[in-house]
Design a protein around this nucleic acid. Structure first.
Lengths: 220, 220
DNA sequence: CTCTATGGATAGTCCTACTATCCGTTGTTG
DNA sequence: CAACAACGGATAGTAGGACTATCCATAGAG
């Protein structure tokens, strides 16, 4: 098929397809002439993945590019998962002060306490420490105390997620498995946040009531 | 203090401070003359909150504005929590097809199953359904099956988060309590994702090994 | 055999989040 | 008390991100 049909099939405008081609996020079609090319089902699938990463996963084009490079590259599942994880956390480079070094130490402690095998450069360390530092600077240090609960919950989920990826992709070839790993990692993050929003709405309705009164004692 | 010192104290450039003032995210200082104004500790605190929402929470200026409007407005804790939750999930308005209506039904089922008190318009519903629909369209419907695990984990955490906010803010006045609710909701989301990244890195190292071989059977 | 579609290149647009400039005071310091 | 940086306020400019439009020579469809 040519670009017009690819556009119809995928719901992506022709100029956008050309843009993704230029950016290297979508492989070029098979050339059938000096100015003609042929696209296949793979291209439709890839386009859908691109849109999912951008729209649902909320990645920037630059981050999506990195992720897709991992899908296409000759990397292991492990490395591809790492690439997807890296794309999810941005590191805005704030100033180093006391709050941030204390926070960093607290994160290091947590990782040690849980026995997590996480490299020194894992962006999650920085990102988690940034949040703890912000809590402190804003005068809510107690919010950081829940970090073990968060970590426990994430450990459970992460194990199941990785198992699910392993169970799914093993028989369709490396590329498809990597695609699944990336999809699950990126979109899973959005799913998690969406469910958290609903769970919080429920919890606040339950504990506070729509009128804003504290019901936390009365309800139990 | 005047704007120069405010800038030094908060680490935000003077032009940026002026920008936030224009946008109404930072209240004007107290006027001491036709072209002089005085800022206080509240302004320093507010600036830190603004930067935390933008840098750590990853909100856009527009979203941060909404959240801050809730902090400043005469709204209940419950409503402020809702505003913060809404700011966290973007709804990119994709086309409605079969995958998305099925997904929507699955989310509605989940909410009913868990007995969550969540309005019909809660953006989390749309966002969660979008993820499920994307899984289906990309050929990974099985990833959606973990949604109950996610929901269970989020329910636990959300309850603790809301309790923590209630325990913290009750004696410092409404505004401070609302500030805490908003801070915890927005930054807590970033913390969750950061920990998930590390937990996944650990899980993939454990189940896959750095070399990319599947160790899932051998390890247990 | 015309006329729309195509691939490829280049330029233009819109949005966001700031920055920079200008201007007529004001505060401050030598 | 003079000079000069700092101020507040308004307006304009900018950099980056994610497309979108235009142009052109050729190709395929009716």
């Amino acid at each position: 098929m040519r670009v017009g049909e690819l556009s119809r099939r995928s719901g992506v405008s022709v100029p956008s397809i050309k843009y993704y081609l230029r950016e290297g996020m979508l492989p070029a079609g098979e050339r059938t002439g000096p100015n003609q090319a042929d696209y296949g089902e793979d291209h439709v699938r890839r386009l859908r993945l691109v849109r999912a990463l951008l729209d649902v996963g909320g990645l920037s084009v630059a981050a999506a590019k990195e992720v897709l490079a991992a899908v296409d590259g000759e990397v292991s599942l492990y490395e591809a998962l790492g690439a997807a994880q890296d794309a999810l956390v941005s590191v805005p480079e704030g100033a180093e002060d006391e709050a941030s070094s204390t926070a960093r130490a607290r994160v290091d402690d947590l990782v040690a306490r849980r026995g997590w095998s996480v490299t020194e450069e894992n962006p999650g360390r920085r990102a988690a420490a940034d949040v703890l530092a912000a809590y402190t600077r804003l005068g809510w240090p107690q919010f950081g105390e829940a970090i073990d609960d968060y970590a426990e919950a994430m450990e459970q989920l992460a194990r199941r997620e990785v198992e699910s990826v392993l169970a799914s992709g093993s028989d369709d070839g490396r590329e498809r498995a990597v695609e699944g790993a990336v999809t699950g990692t990126v979109l899973g993050g959005s799913l998690l946040l969406a469910l958290r929003v609903m769970a919080q709405a429920d919890a606040s309705a339950r504990l506070l009531g729509e009128d804003g009164t504290d019901k936390s004692a009365a309800d139990r």
